[in-house]
Amino acid sequence: MDRMLAARLHVPSRTLRMEEVPRPRPAAGEVLVKVEAAGVCLSDVHLIDGTLTPALLPGDTVTLGHEVAGTVHEAGEGVTRWSPGQRVVLYAGENRDGATWTRGVDYDGGWAQYALSSADALTALPDTIPFEQGAIIPDAVSTPWGAVTGTGAVRPAEAVGVWGAGGLGVHAVQLLRAVGACPVIAVDPSPVARERALAAGADLALDPAGPGLGAQVRAATGGAGLAAAFDFAGVPAVREQALSVLAPRGRLVLVGLTDRPLSVTDSTRFSYLQQQILGHYGSDMAVALPQLLRLVQGGRLDFSASVSGVLPLAEAGRAVEMLAKKEGDPVRLILRP
């Protein structure tokens, strides 16, 4: 039986191992994809450090990687849409038994030489878009896209704040500018991240620990406050700060994941101003991926600056370490089998 290299997480011990495993064969309705690029996300780091735990994984070990692009290697029985050699981007998850399963969390992902996908859980990648950029779209771009256009329902000329200008937040800045939000205010403790946010289109970039953040937000919004605020950091202090500068009827959208409690310090003020807190997770891949790929192909969006480095698959552990320690302040690191 053919073998392949895969980066496997043993969940009980939180141990990431490079292993040779059998290369999967596509069943009826499935496609086997030769992986050309796979993104390394902070969620992968959190799976390894124990902050996140798979909810639906049937066993105790999983191949990580939910951001995957490659070429079709083999189509299973009954699959007519896909044929060997086609360039594709895999969805970051699939619906199974009435639940959403996340690739690389609840079932084997793309930190491997080959990855399986349902035939209806991938989309064509245009020839003009490099694999490295295509790979990051299913999460690093589509998640903030869903948060901005869906959960947050941002409208043109609305004042918006983004807390955390990392792998998802910096894309949120770019996407908010694309949909016409104004002003777009980024908040991040890292000077490098703030500069990155300005380069991505933020009108203002603030240090959350700096003096007078509230006054600066009020000045930038004509005293109105933010119509929408997005927490991409998953930090309780961020949520409290964002609520403090939210306008009446403003929305706080929680995108960053955390196991810490959610609290509202002044619930009377929150209710009086009729504000909202909305949870967000992922995106509708069937809608988001084609939309974003069209925008990239049409020159409306460019994510080339988001690829901070490319490492061999065998160095997955090193990539995780670099992201966890923010070495070089990466947006996205890519593994290439």
Rank of each mutant, 00 (worst) to 15 (best):
R155Q: 11
K326Q: 15
Q113V: 04
G59I: 03
M18F: 05
P58Y: 06
G256S: 01
D188P: 12
I277F: 09
Y281I: 08
G201A: 12
Y272E: 05
A159K: 05
A199G: 15
Q291E: 06
L57R: 08
G279M: 11
A316S: 15
G70E: 01
L168A: 06
G65H: 09
A237T: 07
E36Y: 11
A119K: 11
E327L: 08
A55W: 04
R318M: 06
D120V: 12
V68Q: 08
A119I: 05
A193C: 14
A197V: 15
R81A: 15
S263A: 13
D266K: 14
P130S: 13
R81N: 10
A172T: 01
D2L: 09
A286G: 07
Q133D: 02
L246F: 04
D127L: 09
L47K: 04
G222M: 03
P26K: 01
Q275T: 03
V11K: 06
G50K: 13
A205Y: 00
R218Q: 02
E20V: 10
R96Y: 05
Q86E: 15
G234A: 03
A178E: 07
E30K: 10
G167R: 12
P248A: 12
Q174N: 09
D108H: 15
A165Y: 07
S43L: 03
V253H: 03
D60W: 02
M285T: 00
D97P: 00
L122I: 05
L301W: 04
V307M: 08
L90W: 10
S117W: 04
A305R: 06
L301A: 10
V11P: 12
G104R: 08
D44W: 06
A112W: 03
G59Q: 01
I334V: 13
A178C: 02
L168I: 04
P189N: 07
A286V: 02
P144H: 12
L56R: 15
R332H: 06
R269P: 07
A55Q: 15
E36L: 14
G150A: 07
R332A: 11
M322G: 01
P126N: 10
P211A: 00
A140C: 07
P156K: 10
I136G: 09
A178H: 14
G166V: 12
G110I: 06
P248Q: 10
L16N: 05
L32M: 01
R239W: 08
D329K: 01
R249V: 05
H73T: 01
G164T: 08
Q174V: 12
V187C: 02
A209T: 08
L56H: 14
G109I: 10
P130A: 09
A7D: 04
A75E: 03
L313N: 07
S118T: 01
A242M: 11
G78K: 14
V31P: 04
L116E: 06
A233Y: 09
